[in-house]
């Protein structure tokens, strides 16, 4: 892990496995945040199988990089990545959303591999700034990777944290903003416009890039480039497709929370297997 030259074919295979896990979880309950889980799988593969330094057997290792999931409803994707990484048993994925399960529909810090409780949107980046300050004060090399969503940028607290990250020159802090242009009430651009995003993050003092968030090689390249920028935190804006990898979800009228008919799952699995 964390070699200089990512094995893109291997990472693509990991991303596909993460997507398989996402479908497995959602099929059990017949619904869920499938679109988000599929859309963010490429980033999670790039992080968990290339960039992040962590020990699946020792989650409290002090030198670990922190992955901070600010958007609790994306937990389906993180559970899938953690299962693929050996942090939680793959069979446990079948408990997603079930009563008493550790794998809640909107995840929390009580699940192994979660650094904080996201889901009340706007909390993640501030806590990531705090973690980054704390790690620097301890003179550790660990870095903090925070995943936000485009809709979460409606929350003012995110921008308070953005100011602080730049003020304290946290160049070991990386924010990924998943732009799938979908919030609960409709397209983000219609509900409350957040553009021009790159200019906003730049104006807040962040080293900023905007990439196709469903191309693994673009993600690993962007992280590599970001690491060369000193004295600034890094924003990587990911344009992603909800439901990526399953054509019928990609083309379906966009929904924040997808309901899928029982007969559709077999087709969904077939489409995923047929995808690149």
């Amino acid at each position: 892990m964390n070699g200089n030259n990512p094995d893109i074919a291997c990472l693509k295979a990991r991303a596909k496995n993460i997507r398989r896990h996402v479908l497995r979880m959602a099929e059990r309950v017949g619904q869920g945040y499938v679109g988000q889980g599929l859309g963010i799988a490429d980033l999670l593969a790039a992080l968990y199988f290339h960039e992040l330094r962590y020990d699946a057997k020792r989650l409290d290792w002090p030198e670990r990089d922190r992955f901070v999931l600010s958007i609790g409803h994306y937990s389906i994707g993180l559970y899938a990545a953690l299962a693929e990484a050996g942090v939680i048993p793959i069979e446990e994925l079948d408990t997603y959303g079930a009563d008493g399960s550790r794998l809640e529909m909107s995840g929390s810090e009580f699940t192994p591999g979660f650094e904080m409780t996201g889901g009340s949107l706007g909390h993640g980046l501030g806590q990531a700034v705090g973690m980054a300050l704390g790690l620097r004060l301890d003179a550790r090399d660990a870095r903090v990777f925070c995943l936000l969503s485009d809709g979460e940028l409606h929350e003012g607290a995110t921008w308070e944290a953005a100011m602080a990250g730049a003020h304290y020159r946290l160049d070991h802090l990386f924010a990924f903003i998943d732009c799938n242009n979908q919030v609960a009430d409709g397209p983000t651009a219609q509900v409350m416009n957040i553009e021009p995003l790159q200019l906003k993050w730049q104006a807040f003092g962040w080293d900023t890039q905007r990439i196709n968030g469903n191309r693994i090689e673009d993600i690993t390249d962007a992280i590599a480039r970001a690491k060369t920028a000193r004295n600034q935190p890094h924003a990587i804006i990911l344009d992603t497709l909800m439901g990526k990898g399953v054509t019928m979800f990609e083309n379906r009228e966009k929904q924040h929370f997808i309901r899928v008919e029982a007969r559709e799952w077999e087709l969904a699995r077939k489409q995923l297997e047929a995808s690149l």
Binding site: P62, M116, G126, Q127, V129, G130, G134, A157, E160, A164
Partner: peptide, 16 residues
Amino acid sequence: AEQNLVGIAAGLARAG
């Protein structure tokens, strides 16, 4: 920025 004050404090706490 009081939300950020408490959020950053929580992050510092999680870093020990």
